[in-house]
């Protein structure tokens, strides 16, 4: 009997330890390393950064990389531009996603499952290929320009691809489902009697929407906005494929700093700054999810 209990305990420990150790090793430790390298100096060596402890064993770290990020206007502009782009895409996703989620939540159960399937379907198709699809649409001799010229609206093809507008379109397109799904979840479980009750008490359809539906969908709105904003901030593929050569968003700058300039410490510092910038939205998201889970029970 005692050995059986010991065997149980062994199983318990394995279940606890394996995923725990895996995450410590492959998730937490790498973050420590990024932090460490961001405090090192770039040197011409392999790997190209100075060791944390120099030959004499004393701690040798520097905040130069971060100082550089703050002193160089380019980086400030890059961060600002990333925020603006991500925010614009988030707002557009919300404006488009809310009525869509609302429409799905209020449709007949049979159509609803089909509509949801069509929202989820692009998730399963390669992200890269979906972004690529826009290249064919937006190019100088792409579908849209050909169509406009065929209509006679323009003589010359318009430059759409490789502009900021193309990045904005790409972000909105790629992350729209991330907005729709959480919004749908909150709208679907909302009691429709509440809207009827408001109208019964004298609120018009529009007033009832702003008094009841909108505040009750808040959790979904916050979740959706954060789920679009956070990944859009660090996006690399979309600015690279759809944006012009000067479309400097953080994700791309980080990549270039690392591979083109081979400045590992600076790239690490850029990553740390990006993470710091995202701390606020991530905390908002976590708090929102926790409150939502509490209310659901």
């Amino acid at each position: 009997m005692a050995s059986l209990i010991q065997k149980d305990r062994l199983w318990w420990h394995i279940t606890v330890l394996v995923p725990y150790l895996w995450l410590l090793l492959f998730f937490l430790l790498p973050f420590g390393i990024i932090l460490k390298i961001s405090l090192a100096e770039p040197i011409l060596a392999q790997p190209p950064f100075s060791p944390t402890f120099d030959d004499t064993g004393t701690l040798s770290i520097t905040a130069d990389n971060f100082a550089f990020l703050f002193s160089d206007k380019l980086y400030a502009l890059t961060y600002l531009k990333s925020v603006i782009m991500a925010a614009a895409a988030t707002i557009c996703c919300l404006l488009l996603g809310f009525p869509i989620a609302y429409g799905i939540a209020r449709s007949q159960p049979r159509t609803r499952s089909l509509l949801l399937l069509l929202i989820v379907l692009p998730f399963w198709i390669s992200f890269l290929l979906r972004v690529y699809a826009w290249m064919g649409l937006l190019g100088n001799y792409g579908v849209i320009n050909n169509f406009l010229m065929w209509l006679g609206i323009t003589e010359q093809p318009m430059q759409i691809l490789y502009t900021d507008f193309a990045i904005f379109l790409g972000l909105t397109y790629s992350y729209l489902p991330f907005m729709i799904l959480p919004l749908y979840a909150t709208l679907e479980r909302m009691d429709l009697d509440l809207v009827d009750a408001a109208m019964d008490l004298g609120a018009s359809r529009t007033t009832a929407f702003w008094d009841i539906t909108w505040p009750l969908a808040r959790a979904g709105v916050i979740a959706g906005c954060m789920l679009v904003f956070i990944p859009a901030m660090g996006e690399y593929v979309i600015p690279f494929l759809l944006g012009g050569p000067d479309a400097l968003l953080i994700g791309r700058v980080l990549f270039d700093e690392f591979y083109v300039n081979r400045d590992w410490p600076l790239a690490s510092a850029v990553a740390i700054m990006l993470l710091l910038l995202l701390v606020v939205p991530i905390v908002i998201l976590q708090k929102n999810q926790a409150r939502d889970a509490e209310q659901a029970t």
Partner: peptide, 27 residues
């Protein structure tokens, strides 16, 4: 509905969850 001299008490009661008792009643 909003212009009728008729009010309804719902089976689910449909109390607005984001308003206090007082606010619900005054709505």
């Amino acid at each position: 509905a909003y212009d009728r001299p008729v009010n309804m008490m719902f089976q689910s009661y449909a109390i607005f969850p984001h308003m206090s008792v007082e606010k619900n009643i005054a709505y």
